[in-house]
């Protein structure tokens, strides 16, 4: 049983609609495949993270990775 955060879902939904709309423009603009891939990757990653957050399964965040790296180097205690 996954408890979903509905506010988060509605925010995600709003963004998805916007990005799908944007995707249409992107295709009609005849942008290069590189642009398309970048766009899809960013959108998909934010979607996945958003869904995980909505489900309450927060993965370790970049901030934590960065902190970990700095701890390894020894800059931050």
């Amino acid at each position: 049983m996954i408890i979903m955060n509905y506010n988060m879902l509605s925010v995600l939904l709003a963004f998805i609609i916007m990005e799908l709309y944007n995707l249409r423009r992107l295709i009609s603009n005849k942008e290069s495949i590189k642009v398309l891939i970048t766009y899809v990757v960013i959108t998909a990653s934010s979607l996945v993270i958003g869904l995980l957050l909505a489900a309450g399964r927060r993965p370790a965040s970049p901030a934590e990775w960065i902190q970990w790296i700095f701890k390894m180097i020894g800059v931050v205690k």
Binding site: Y6, N7, S10, V11, L13, A14, I17
Partner: peptide, 9 residues
């Protein structure tokens, strides 16, 4: 979008 984000929650 405004309407969506407002009316849903």
């Amino acid at each position: 979008l405004f309407m969506l984000s407002i009316l849903l929650p």
